[in-house]
């Protein structure tokens, strides 16, 4: 009970610190925010009006308190470019990104675990070289490069998938998956590399342990030994690393969603940044950081469930 309570307090504290960092990054940096939004050529009256409506004339602490107060009370302000309540925008877009993130994680794991196991089983043979070389290649190309290749091959040439856009899952769920597939594949390839290496090194460690030799001596088939005995023990660390990659993934979706015109959180963030929509920038940056933090927490807790050897102190 104390553990849960401590954890909860720590979450609230971290959320509070996330608001501080977000606000600092978007406000304390030099430059007039109104000027940044409207450009240096805009007329002084319009600038003054914008300052007034954004409350930029108030002391910085008052501005911060107003923003956090709004976050807590559910008044997240309005987007300057979309002319809509930000909370409404976010709740729409976050679904699209959730589909994309989950899908790319599944693709990455589905590729990385077999590849990593294969490399570990055939350690220092050609299979290992093939596996680690493809992993190395995966991390060495920017994921938007993969994205461009996917668009060219699977959308333009083969016409198997749409090259851009997004369909609401409530309208056409199959269409949602089709639109998410290519960006998810491109993200998954970038993600896969790290996970393959992790799977390989964890599996290598486990395969040299005593209980594996016992299992083989008992006459179990090699398949049972590897998949039921070794992998069951390796999956925990791999999931943890996968969870830590969520942060990386939420950075990458900004590029990938923009490239594919996939209207999720990443796309929304990019529009906000490009158009200097300050209220929207603050809220999207805050939400992404909060989601990353909460996902990491969830992975920590999941780890306890997967691996019963871990006892909470």
């Amino acid at each position: 009970m104390t553990y849960v309570l401590n954890r909860l307090l720590s979450v609230i504290l971290t959320l509070f610190m996330i608001t501080l960092v977000t606000f600092a990054v978007t406000n304390i940096l030099p430059g007039d925010v109104a000027m940044m939004i409207m450009g240096t050529q805009s007329n002084p009256e319009a600038l003054a009006g914008l300052r007034q409506s954004l409350g930029l004339n108030d002391p910085i602490l008052v501005q911060y308190a107003r923003w956090v107060g709004g976050l807590v009370s559910g008044d997240w302000g309005n987007s300057l470019i979309f002319k809509k309540p930000i909370l409404e925008l976010l709740s729409q877009k976050i679904v699209a990104s959730a589909v994309l993130v989950v899908m790319s994680m599944c693709i990455a794991l589905a590729l990385a675990i077999p590849l990593g196991v294969w490399a570990a089983v055939h350690r220092d043979k050609w299979q290992d070289t093939v596996s680690s070389s493809s992993a190395l290649l995966g991390v060495s190309l920017p994921d938007f490069f993969w994205g461009i290749v996917m668009i060219l091959v699977f959308a333009r040439w083969l016409g198997w998938f749409p090259s851009s856009g997004f369909v609401e899952p409530s309208v056409d769920f199959w269409g949602t998956l089709q639109h998410a597939f290519l960006p998810a594949l491109a993200l998954g390839l970038g993600l896969m590399a790290h996970l393959t290496r992790m799977t390989r090194s964890t599996m290598t460690g486990i395969l040299s342990q005593e209980f594996i030799r016992v299992a083989r001596a008992k006459g179990l088939t090699e398949r049972t030994v590897i998949w039921r005995y070794a992998l069951a023990n390796a999956i925990g660390p791999v999931i943890t690393i996968a969870g830590l990659q969520i942060g990386y993934l939420f950075g990458s979706i900004i590029v990938m969603e923009s490239l594919f015109g996939y209207t999720g959180m990443g796309w929304l963030t990019y529009q906000a940044l490009l158009n200097r929509d300050l209220p929207l920038i603050q809220d999207t940056v805050f939400v992404i950081a909060a989601v990353v933090m909460l996902t990491n927490l969830a992975v920590d807790l999941l780890y306890v469930v997967i691996d019963p050897r871990i006892r909470l102190g």
């Binding site: 971290t14 610190m17 996330i18 940096l29 950075g251 900004i254 950081a289 990353v292 990491n296």
Partner: peptide, 24 residues
């Protein structure tokens, strides 16, 4: 480290993009 961990919740690319957009 509490401070550093908070920063780690921000994806590096997001942080870099935001700083770059704000600074110009």
């Amino acid at each position: 480290m509490r401070f550093v961990d908070t920063l780690l919740a921000f994806p590096a690319l997001l942080l870099a993009l935001t700083i770059s957009a704000v600074l110009g």
